[in-house]
């Protein structure tokens, strides 16, 4: 029996999410004496996965499959699982994987659990913890089927190096490529060069406290010096001050970076629902009663227009050390 991970690529390279999945799979495989396989299309540096404990990478070189299509990739992963006797399959929580997940679950006849935040419990039954109620609860979920599909929550597992001697194997999955004709990609709009909000380790976010779009320069600069992505609260996106892709919260993106810095955001429950998976949260707000102070780890009570520029200078100085 093997554990199979769906390894996604980013610009042809193994994505960070794939390393997280590998680390999760390896930690579990070490407990159960299993091996970890990975399957991915167009991974130029597939061998990179050996570092994180993957014993074998099934590399798919088919040009068509290099582009994501939920149905084609679901077939590819299902075929890899069947041919390699894998009954536990792991996927990430990227937009693509979330899209593919249920289609794959259907092909595998697998019990499917999303937003998983723990390794399976040590018990006779297969139980994992997952986030529910937008991070306001945790559900111990038992999977009753032989085949199991887990979607691992973002940033819940650290990437851990556990190198093994792995092998690369060319894999030609049985996929009906006609699905690419059924879903023609006509255009892609992607912000290039910027760190994507979903993958960012650090996110600098601002709210209505900033008064207007003209004041976002300092937020972008703070993000720049930290190598962070930028985000915003819902009203800010609704007012058109920032692109709505930046809107985080219950009805926007759900993110879970290592560090979330909230500037001039009150900390409404719907906002927190999208960000309280973050490992560390810093709030900067001039109202000491702002609810965000109850949720954050670190706080500065002060005027953003005074604190943020100072903080930028301090961080610049710190980075120079």
């Amino acid at each position: 029996m093997y554990i199979l991970i769906y390894a996604e690529s980013q610009n042809g390279k193994v994505a960070k999410s794939a390393k997280e999945l590998a680390s999760y799979a390896k930690a579990y495989a070490d407990k159960t004496g299993q091996e970890v396989f990975a399957v991915g299309a167009g991974l130029e540096d597939a061998g990179e996965l050996f570092k994180y404990g993957v014993n074998k990478v099934l590399t798919v070189e088919n040009e068509t499959l290099k582009q994501f299509n939920a149905f084609a990739h679901a077939q590819m992963v299902a075929d890899a699982a069947k041919k390699n006797d894998a009954n536990l399959v792991l996927i990430s929580s990227s937009n693509d994987a979330v899209y593919m997940g249920p289609v794959l679950a259907d092909l595998l006849d697998a019990g499917y659990v999303s937003q998983v935040i723990s390794l399976p419990e040590e018990s006779d039954t297969f139980i994992v913890k997952r986030k529910v109620f937008s991070n306001k609860g945790i559900a111990y979920t038992e999977v009753l089927t032989d085949n199991k599909l887990l979607r691992i929550a973002k940033n819940s597992f650290e990437v851990i190096e556990k190198p093994v001697e792995g092998t690369l194997e060319k894999f030609e999955p049985e996929v009906d490529l006609s699905v690419y004709d059924e879903y023609k990609v006509v255009k892609v709009d992607k912000a290039t060069g910027k760190i994507s909000l979903s993958d960012a380790d650090i996110v600098v976010s601002a709210g209505r406290g900033l008064k207007g779009p003209e004041n976002w320069g300092m937020i972008e600069e703070l993000a720049d010096v930290l190598g962070a992505a930028t985000a915003c609260s819902k009203p800010v996106a609704d007012l058109g001050w920032r692109p709505h892709q930046e809107h985080v919260g219950q009805t926007g993106k759900q993110i879970a970076p290592n560090l979330y810095i909230a500037v001039g955001i009150s900390g409404a429950i719907q906002h927190l629902a999208g960000v309280n998976g973050s490992k560390n949260m810093v709030v900067i707000n001039n109202d000491p009663e702002a609810p965000f102070f109850k949720a954050a780890d670190y706080g500065v009570v002060g005027d953003a227009f005074e604190v943020v520029p100072k903080l930028i200078e301090k961080i610049k100085a710190f980075k120079k050390q």
Binding site: T141, V283, Y298, G299
Partner: peptide
């Protein structure tokens, strides 16, 4: 295919550390 055995609430956050501006 899946069944929830029990629930819990996320661990409460420790108290916030306030830093002077």
């Amino acid at each position: 295919r899946t069944k929830i055995d029990k629930y819990e609430k996320p661990a409460p956050k420790g108290a916030i550390k306030l830093v002077d501006k």
